[in-house]
Nucleic acid binder design. Structure first.
Lengths: 331, 331
DNA sequence: ATGAAAGCGCTAACAT
DNA sequence: ATGTTAGCGCTTTCAT
């Protein structure tokens, strides 16, 4: 201690009002010189705050972790955490045992101030428990329950735009390679596809709807299943799957976009060097990560805050795989 | 409190000896019933243990985060953390400011018990500071300093095997698309390439050595730079880059493996559906993650422990892109 | 084998 | 504006 009491030091460190500027200067100086730093454990013992945000990635989404979605989301999240002086903890499960072991830990809500949950499944069991235990959280991916704050990308509108674009280009038999049926984003993108067909009076043909799991390999296989049904164009629910689909087409010597046109979803970097370059729906994933943190922190700072429901727009990026109007004019 | 004092409860919870079995039963039962759980903050205040492991991913490796390496590493790490009841915290920097802001936080060593650092750069400045501050850590990726514990994959041997394989198949002008020059794994893989050429008396031609940054797009560009120099075969330091390279070749109407053969590194899933399927060097990334945690925990439990230096083997996976001996017999 | 009491490093209510 | 004091929830001597 250099001149004053612990309380005063505490006040200075926490920027509390009611400290004489002169004293505040002196203390700050010594703090800087000695490299003093408050012990986080002691702090959280009295504050009930940890300075930690948790990120929960449930079992079923592990496949997602292989495509570029998660890394980009995590980049956004950590960037925002760094800005706000929070630390990010990761909770991933790889098996049901791990899930049942981790859930109580999470629900106890002592390891973090709040959590971000990702890729909510249809009929998710975590959300109601979180609500019941009053664990502050935000969902990346929309949620029906009006109590839950979420941030999502407009998957329905993105898919809708993609399919309308294909319709405008004149394709008739428009198929889709959807994501896993339990995944909400996948469901929404499928819905966008269905809405577009319906709005334009196109028939819905179940043979033209197949599922993948968002990975490149699954896109490859899905396209192989689709081929016998002679689609003219395919809306693929992720770029990774689209690249796989492209490979299946190439393998079967089917020209893209001349014989089959493709639109993906994500705009991940390899889309630009795919052959042909991939037309796709760009989604602001990193931005989602950043906002997830910021909204969560808002909630933490104001308990009375109403649930936030945020939906970010997507963007159609036209490259060659859809057979642009210009290309088609040549015929 | 149900019958006994806090001390006794504490003893039961921490499995300390010297508690009458009968009492221990009774207490355990009540603990289970009430769902009591010790407050981690209070615990770490007295223990000086947080139950948290940090994972540090420095600035320059962000590109890596886009390829499948990191997700798989993180899966291994979190799995081991779950098994040992530790939580994982993530420390990523996206800019120099963030780095200089985060380093002191890390060096203070209050937010975790120990850390895993990844993708050490040549001339890394973090390691010496960690050593000086006695922060327990393990490096994923080898390190010269004999004080540091590390776990790595045998990059030199893996690359060596790949290039020897190409030599055996009879290729003469063998090129490489290396990783970033500052990345140790990239340096090692390049070294393996050079060693193989040297051991077999092949000339080393700098025109046949180009760099990428491990991403698919960079592999595409690197291959374009390589083409004017007419390589017969290319050892590519990552599968992501190899897929990019493949695309560049396809774009230039160059047949693989007949005109140019390719071997990658990683064995990531899309390698199997590449056209042609990619011959590659498989590395046990997830295993590296698991072992990193386990070795770190060993170190935490036994301060006197000597630095551990672990190198895991790789494996040559022969598919079609190298032009297998069988294929070549047809000519 | 168990309990009493001190103390980990901080914040906050209260007193001055 | 600053200091005094109690207490956050646990572990750990030290008694008994």
């Amino acid at each position: 201690m250099a001149g004053v009491s612990r309380s005063t030091v505490s006040r200075v460190i926490n920027n509390q009002p009611g400290v004489k500027p002169e004293v505040q200067q002196r203390v700050s100086k010594i703090v800087a010189e000695t490299g003093y730093y408050p012990n986080p454990a002691a702090r959280s013992l009295v504050n009930h705050q940890t300075g930690i945000i948790g990120l929960v990635v449930p079992l079923q989404v592990q496949s997602l972790f292989v495509d570029p979605y998660f890394p980009r989301l995590i980049q956004g999240i950590t960037q925002a955490c760094n800005n706000h002086d929070y630390t990010l903890s990761l909770f991933l499960f790889h098996s049901d045992e791990e899930e049942s072991k981790l859930y109580p830990k999470i629900l106890r809500n002592q390891l973090f101030d709040g959590i971000i949950i990702t890729a909510t499944q249809v009929n998710d069991i975590l959300v109601p428990q979180l609500l019941a235990n009053k664990v502050p959280f935000i969902s990346v991916g929309r949620h029906e329950n009006s109590q839950v704050s979420f941030i999502d990308v407009d998957n329905v509108a993105g898919a809708y735009t993609a399919v309308i674009h294909l319709i405008r280009l004149g394709y008739q038999r428009i198929a889709t390679i959807a994501g896993p049926a339990k995944n909400l984003s996948a469901v929404d993108r499928l819905q966008g596809y269905l809405n577009a067909l319906r709005d334009r009076g196109y028939p819905i043909d179940n043979e033209l709807i197949v599922n993948g799991d968002f990975t490149e390999v699954s896109g490859y296989e899905a396209m192989q299943r689709l081929l016998p049904h002679k689609p003219e164009a395919v809306f693929v629910a992720s770029d990774a799957m689209a690249v796989g689909a492209l490979r299946a087409l190439q393998n079967g010597n089917i020209a893209v976009p001349n014989q089959i046109a493709l639109i993906g979803f994500d705009d991940f970097p390899p889309a630009t060097i795919a052959i042909p370059p991939l037309t796709t729906i760009r989604q602001p994933i990193k931005q989602v990560g950043i906002m997830a943190v910021e909204v969560l922190l808002d909630i933490l700072n104001d308990e009375t805050k109403q649930p936030q429901r945020i939906i970010l727009p997507t963007e159609l990026v036209i490259r060659d795989s859809c057979g642009s109007t210009i290309e088609r004019r040549r015929y």
